[in-house]
Every structure is written in C-alpha cells, then in structure tokens.
Write a protein that binds this DNA or RNA. Structure first.
Lengths: 232, 232
DNA sequence: CGCATCTTTGATAGGAGTCAATATTTGTGG
DNA sequence: CCACAAATATTGACTCCTATCAAAGATGCG
C-alpha cells in the first residue's frame, strides 16, 4: 500500500476509504499532500484553479467575503471532511486553516476523472455532501430563531462533541478552535456580545473558562437546554 | 419512451436527464408520480419510510420543527429539484407542498439501487447536492449579517429571478409563493416586520404590491443594492 | 520589557420583537 | 351572489436585545 495512505489517520473515515486498495493507490499518485499553517489559505473566492481536498488533520474554515470585504464563516471542516466545489468554474468561498492542517489535495480535473472511474467514490462524496447540507441547514435553524445565548450554547455543545472521542457524549473540556471574533462572525453576533454571553454562561454555572481558549463543560444538560435543540 | 417521461416538463433538467433513454425507462417503472395539494406533506420529520423525489411542477418547502413545535423553513424546492436524504435512517425535516405539486417519487431502496446501477445518476445527484449546499450557505450568509430590509430585498430578488424565464434577469412581476408568515419564518423575522419592511420597500419605490401576493419590481438595481449582495 | 493583539467591561442607542387593535382577503354555506 | 366567519395582513405603541462606541485589562510575541 501507498506509504502516505498507510499511515493516514483518516484512511478509514475519509471519502477515499470506500475505494479498493488498488484504486486508492492509483488515486494517491495524482494527489499531493499539503500542510498549511494557521491562517494560510488553501484557495480564495474567485480562484478558477481551485482544487479539491480531504482534510487529514487540523481544522479549516469556509468563509464568504461580501462586497465590503467582511468575511462570514459558513462552515468548519474537520478531519476526513471533503473540501471543494467540483461543478463550478471558480470557487465561491475562501478556505483557510484555523490550525496547522494537513490536506490531501487533488486538481479538479483529476477528481472529476476519479469519480467517473470509481463510482463508489461518487457515492461517498454524495453522502458527505448531504451531510454537509444537513449541517448547513442546522446552522440556518440555529441562527434564524435563537437568541445570542442559544446560538453560543449550541456552538459550544457542538464543539464539545467534536472534541470528544465517543461519538455522542460531549467532551468535558476542550480548546476553542476559534477566536472570539471568529465565533462572533460565525454566529452573526459581535465580539462584545460573545464575550458577555460567555461570561453569563459561566455565571450560570454551565461552563468554566480556562484562559482565553479553554472551556470546561460543567453542566452539559443546561447548555443543551439553553441551545434550544433536542439532540443533534 | 415511457409516456410519463416523454411529456415530463423537467425531463431535460432533472437529475434523471443524465440517464440513457433505456435507463430512464427502467427507473421510471419503479417510481410513481404523486400530486400534492397546497399544504399537503410529502413526508414528515421522523418518518423512517421517507422516500426520495424529483419535483416535476409546483413548489415545496423543507422545514425543521423545533421542540416547541415551531417550524423553520430551511429551503424551497423548485421544479427539477431533488428531495430526500438517502443516507439517514429517518427524515430530519418536513417536506410540504406550497402550491399544487407533482412529484416523481422513489423509495429509498430503489434510489439506492439506482445510484449503484447508474453512476451518472450518482454524479448528477452529487452536483445537485453541492448546489443545494451552496444555496444553504448563501442563506446563512444572508441571515447572519444583514438587516431585515436586506434579507427581504434579497428574497424578493431571488423570487423575481426564479419567476423569470431568462436565467439571469429578474421577472418584472410575479406572485409570492409564500405567505407573510412563511416569509418571516424563512428569514428569521416576524410577520409584522415583514409587513412593515414591504411597506418601506414600496414607499422607497423599489417595488409595488399588487394585492396580497403580487409583487411588481420597480427598481431591480435598488433592490439588489439593499440586499447587500453582488450578483448571485 | 514593551508593543500589538485579543478580550473584557461599561454606557448608550437603534432595530426588531411583542402585544394589541384594525383592516383586508379568502372561503364557505345559505 | 351575498353574507358571515376565519384566516391573513397591516398599522401602532412600547420594550428588550444586541450593536455600537469607548476604554481598560489580559495575553502573547519579538
């Protein structure tokens, strides 16, 4: 087996995990790994040579840039996530590393060929795309109705789950992958409101702040209740 | 060729348009057409026998229901749009007809088989899914930052374009497919705010209201400017 | 150690929500 | 075809949440 793939941490969870070993080797020869430092851009809105990629480790954000130059975070990408618009002539969004990130990058052309050669890959990407769609709609649901407190509680709960090993139970403690400004941006709030509401969540005993980025979940049920969500 | 398909208005634009004639005929034998009246539900959140469908004519809404029973419209579906979560055990959202709608419905099992048998279909659905994802993210961008006025202007502009024959120019006049309550719900506003802002858009000379549902676009550029968007 | 960046905290104001009343449209049955 | 009831939409007064403006504390990096 290809060396890179052999020790890939997402080899069993990424889209390419549905391929036969031979197929994956073939695909890996046209892909290349790339490492981005925090803040570095994989590609920008408007790029016409934007590629596709699977995130191997780290975290990325997908953000739109409006005509005033303000960015709006649309989605976070976690390891094994797939990035890339395969059917548009150019990228609509910026894709930026939140932490040092390792990616497996493919040109759009190679990716197009791959999904024709390997139908299972197309189906895997379809599944992933529908999951992303569901996540985006959950975000809509959250931001449409929902106070600042509810949005923040939901985001914290999501992060806690993402940080946990067990799939459904939230981690007891984790580091925020985003700055206050990024959190505010993602939730459609201001930095000040995020800061205040974090303080209130701490006062109420739902969380405890550990330094600037550290969060300890004291009362997950309370957090979930505040978020206004049932489960997912 | 199959009779139903032969006179299908979306036969050249729906996902199944990528199939060979023979393949499409085969698929059409396992699908069935269904007609829903305004307000009727295709399936509901939680249904485990939820199916997949292509919208042939009419308009549908996809809506989440929170634990208080309030609905949140997440997306509208227009003719040739595809509906259905193929990889989840049960439906997450309600799917309801906004106007009398005709659909081509497939059981999930048949659909799963179809995307295995016809790789081109899987690719077509992938493309559609990515388009839906992009639409959902545009919605996020709109609702996150953006005043009530901007959201409403953007929605009206979108509707005007959807109502137009030519792909890019907005229609000069059209009927709103949604009630005030549905518009409010979709934009994360209240009925009263929608009503007021519609009045202001009229005062400003951007639109003219014709009865409850009719809208005439007086000044498309102004509307676009208020929406805070560049183009799409 | 000092500067730059990020975060917290405070005071104020504005936009949208809420509550309430009125007007309009729609649909149904007489 | 009209009349009445129910649903939908508009308008007004008031309140509350969050944005904005401003300043002071942390935190981190060179």
């Amino acid at each position: 087996m290809n060396l890179v793939c052999a020790q890939c941490p997402v080899r069993d969870s990424a889209a390419c995990s549905v391929l036969e070993e031979k197929e994956r080797d073939a695909l890996s020869t046209v892909g290349r790994t790339r490492v981005l430092k925090r803040g570095e851009m994989l590609f920008a809105a408007g790029d016409d040579e934007a590629a596709c990629a699977t995130l191997v480790s780290g975290a990325m954000k997908i953000a739109a840039v409006d005509r005033d130059g303000n960015e709006q975070i649309l989605s976070l990408v976690h390891p094994s996530g797939f990035i890339g618009e395969m059917f548009t002539p150019f990228a609509h969004h910026d894709v930026v590393a939140l932490t040092e990130s390792r990616l497996c990058v493919f040109s759009r052309k190679d990716m197009e060929r791959a999904i024709e050669d390997y139908p299972a890959l197309a189906r895997a990407l379809l599944r992933r795309s529908q999951e992303d769609l569901h996540a985006a709609r959950s975000m809509i649901e959250l931001t449409a109705h929902g106070s600042a407190e509810a949005r923040l509680a939901a985001l914290l709960y999501d992060f806690a789950r993402a940080a946990s090993d067990s799939p459904c139970h939230p981690a007891g403690e984790f580091d925020l992958p985003l700055s206050r400004g990024e959190i505010a941006n993602m939730l459609g709030l201001t930095i000040e409101t995020v800061s205040r509401k974090l303080g209130e969540l701490e006062d109420v005993g739902a969380i405890r702040r550990k330094g600037k980025r550290g969060i300890e979940i004291i009362d997950p049920a309370h957090l979930l209740a505040l978020s206004g969500k049932d489960e997912n």
